[in-house]
Nucleic acid binder design. Structure first.
Lengths: 125, 125
DNA sequence: ATAATATATCAGCGTATCATGATATATGAA
DNA sequence: TTCATATATCATGATACGCTGATATATTAT
């Protein structure tokens, strides 16, 4: 692949968005919008396993979306910047108007369309 | 996985962000910020293969981020909403302040860190 | 020092994602 | 109709991702 896709800016931006592109990480980010939380708190509020939570927090931390602070034997996480919340809010606003289309967004290639259909049918139950 | 991560809103939002989370799709979205373009145009400006471009356009279309309009035997694509551009701009703004951290955001699990290091070293060349 | 708790890391497995090259479909031109 | 062009889809392979269960590390309490 030898194209504009390799430009550094686009790569970085894609990585930034990847921080937001997983339900588990979004759940964490949303939880942190209510204020700082320890890993234990986040495990409790999200219901995810501890290693999984820790991994996603590591990803978010390395993305620069959250900041970790050790306090005693706990580690407290908080959003790194108000714009993280702004991005979430803007996405919600956009989503409100394009929600129907996003039901189909599971697919990358066409082989995913069956799964998408199944999901849609299931949602309609 | 039986947790908050399964809530419908979070899933949809994750799918929306996945539209932005790939360099190829970001390149397409940025190209479309200059106005509508046909697939042929996009293939030319991004340098991506035609099938790959088409696949990514399909993803963006199903995400609701772009809209396709058939004109003759061409299909012209345009951004579906101003907020798509707003999200890109907001991300750029955020990125400008956390760029250093995002260099590390390749990782999900720790096994990716070697790759990340290699990328970083390569960037520093 | 030992034990207990909080967090991070590891190994692995199943699946999704993205790229490619070949092919199908569809629209317009000769 | 036949051909050329524009776009979409298919088959496949390589890699990335996310989850789990086990383990390592680090900090506090006894």
């Amino acid at each position: 692949m030898l194209n504009v896709t390799n430009s550094e800016g686009v790569q970085l931006q894609a990585k930034l968005f990847r921080g937001f592109s997983d339900p588990a990480r979004l759940a964490i980010l949303q939880a942190l919008q209510n204020g700082p939380q320890t890993v234990t708190d986040i495990v409790a509020t999200t219901g995810m396993s501890q290693p999984n939570t820790s991994n996603h927090l590591g990803c978010l931390r390395d993305c620069g979306l959250v900041i970790a602070e050790q306090q005693g034997r706990f580690v407290t996480y908080h959003l790194s910047d108000d714009r993280v919340g702004d991005l979430l809010a803007l996405a919600s606003s956009l989503l409100a108007d394009v929600a129907r289309g996003v039901y189909d967004c599971t697919r990358y290639t066409s082989r995913d369309e069956l799964r998408t259909k199944l999901i849609k049918e299931h949602i309609n139950d």
